[in-house]
Design a protein around this nucleic acid. Structure first.
Lengths: 265, 265
DNA sequence: TCTCGGGTCCCGCACTGCGGAACAAGCGAT
DNA sequence: ATCGCTTGTTCCGCAGTGCGGGACCCGAGA
C-alpha cells in the first residue's frame, strides 16, 4: 500500500475487514456442486490467490474439518463441518415447520413440485421441497441453487425487495452477465409488472425450456429475510391456463396462511 | 512471541496455520441448533475472543453472506451462504443416490427410521434419513447431530475406525466429558466387542431412554470417510429380539449391497 | 535421465489484524 | 431526568502474523 505519508490511511470501513478470513471463505465457496475434489493449484486459479497462500488456507480449513484431504489424490473436498452449520440454520427456521403441511397438500393437488427458497448472492437456494411421490422429473433437492434472473422464484424475490436493495441486486445481475442483459432486463421488468398486478411471477420456460413455474414471495413482518414459495413442473402438465386459474390463487393463499400463522409466533 | 534470538522460531506446523481464518470459523461454529440470534458479546463469551476481534470477524462474515445481521436486535444469525456449501458437499456424495432405494425399502419394512450419517468432530451428522410417512415420533432431519459416545451410529463409527485414529477420538471423547467417563467407556467397549462378533452396534436406550437403534458402518475401499447406516425407532416397537433376528441381518445386507454398488463406480 | 506440473517450504518484510481502552448508544430502575 | 449497567463500535499504536516470490521436492511421463 503506497501512501505518501506512510500512515495507515485506509478508509475506516476497511479496517473492520479481515482479509484472511474472507479469503478462506472464498476457498470454501469455490467448491461448486459439480466438482468433488480440488487441488491447491486449481483453488489458486479459481480464487486468484497465490499458491502459498492457498496452501496455508487449505491447511487451516482442513485442520478445522471444513475441508477434507485425500492423501492419495493430494486434493481437497468439502468437509463435514459445513453440514453442521447449515443444520444450525435450517433448524432455526420455523417457516419450514409451519409451511410443511400446506406445501405437501399443494404438491399433492397439483402433482408438481412445491418449493421454498431464500436468496444467496445471485442464486435462490431451496430450503425445502415437496413433490408427489410419483414425480421424478425435475430432481431438485434441498440446497439446490437456481439463478435469480431467469426463474420465477428469483424474480418473485426481486419483486418483493425494497427499491434500494432491488436496484443494487439488479445491478449485480447485470454485471455478472453483460452479454444477455437486454433479454434479462426485459424479463425482469415483465415480472415486476406481473407481480404488481397479480401477486405472483411466472417463468414459462425461461430457465429450462421444459419447465414452467410460478412463485410468490413472503415478506416477514419482523424484517427478517424474504422467502419465496414456488410451484414448478413439466411444461406439458402446467399450462399457463391452469397455472393462472388454479395454482396461482392457491399459492397466494398458501403464502397468506403461512404469514398469519407466523405472525402469532 | 518472546524468543531469545528473535527469529521466528515457531514450530513449523504453526506457520501454516492462519489464525484469523480459524477464529472466523470458530465464530460460525458457535451457533448451535438451539440459538437463533447471537450478539457480539455472546459470541465473544462463547469463543473466548476479545470483543473488538469478534466485531471485526462478524463484520467480515456478514459481508460475505455467512452471517446475517438483524438491525433491530443488533444480533447475528447464520446466513444463507452456509446452505450453498453444504449442498455442494451433499451433491457430491453418490452414496446417497445409491443407498436411497435400499434405505427406503428398509424403512418401509421396519416401519422405523433409516439413517445415513458421517462424523463431524464429536458428533455424527445425518446426511440422509428415510421413514415411513406415518412415523412422526422421532423427528431428526438431515443435518441432525447426535453424539458419538452414546448412540449406535456413533459407536459403529468408532468400531470401524482404524486403531490409531480410534484411540485419538476416544481420548477426545473422554476429555469432553470426564464426568461420565467410566460409564461411557464401558458402553464403548461393549459396542466394540459387539461389532467384532456380529458386525453391528446397538443402543437400547443409551441416548434417549425411549429410543432403540442399531447401526452398521461402511468403510469405503477408496479410503474416503467412513459412513454409518442406522435404523432407529421407539423402544416398544423395536425390541432386542426383532432387532437381532430381523433388522440386523437386513441392515448388514444393505451395507453390503451399497458397498458392492459403489465399488463398480 | 530430463522435464514438467503439482505441492510444500523458506524467509525477510510490511501491513494487517490485534486488543485494551475510550466512546457511544440503548434500556431499566430509581 | 439521572444514573448505572450492559452491549456494541471505534480508535490507535504496536508487534507478530500472514504474505508471496521463489527455491525445493517429488512423482509421473517421455
Amino acid at each position: 500500500m503506497a501512501f505518501e505519508d506512510g500512515t495507515a490511511a485506509l478508509p475506516q470501513k476497511e479496517r473492520k475487514f479481515v482479509t484472511a478470513l474472507a479469503r478462506g471463505l472464498e476457498v470454501l465457496s469455490c467448491f461448486h456442486a459439480g466438482d468433488r475434489f480440488l487441488g491447491n493449484n486449481q483453488i489458486a486459479e479459481r480464487t486468484g490467490l497465490p499458491k502459498s497462500t492457498v496452501s496455508r488456507l487449505t491447511f487451516t480449513l482442513t485442520e478445522r474439518g471444513f475441508l477434507r484431504y485425500s492423501p492419495n489424490l493430494n486434493q481437497y473436498r468439502l468437509g463435514t463441518a459445513v453440514l453442521s452449520l447449515s443444520y444450525s440454520l435450517l433448524g432455526q427456521m420455523d417457516v419450514r415447520r409451519i409451511a410443511r403441511p400446506l406445501m405437501q397438500a399443494l404438491a399433492e393437488h397439483t402433482q408438481a413440485a412445491v418449493n421454498l427458497g431464500v436468496r444467496d448472492r445471485l442464486d435462490m437456494v431451496y430450503i425445502d421441497t415437496y413433490r408427489n411421490a410419483s414425480t421424478y422429473a425435475v430432481q431438485l433437492d434441498v440446497g439446490s441453487q437456481i439463478p435469480i434472473a431467469t426463474t420465477s422464484m428469483g424474480r418473485a424475490y426481486l419483486a418483493a425487495l425494497a427499491g434500494q436493495e432491488r436496484a443494487e441486486l439488479i445491478e449485480q445481475i447485470r454485471a455478472a452477465d453483460e452479454q444477455n442483459w437486454p433479454r434479462i432486463k426485459a424479463a425482469i421488468d415483465r415480472s415486476l409488472a406481473e407481480y404488481r398486478e397479480k401477486g405472483y411471477c411466472l417463468s414459462l420456460g425461461d430457465w429450462r425450456k421444459e419447465v414452467h413455474a410460478i412463485a410468490a414471495p413472503l415478506v416477514p413482518e419482523d424484517g427478517s429475510e424474504i422467502m419465496v414459495f414456488s410451484c414448478s413442473g413439466a411444461s406439458f402438465q402446467m399450462g399457463r391456463d391452469v397455472i393462472e386459474a388454479d395454482i396461482g390463487p392457491r399459492l397466494i393463499n398458501l403464502v397468506g396462511n403461512v404469514r398469519t400463522a407466523m405472525s402469532r409466533l
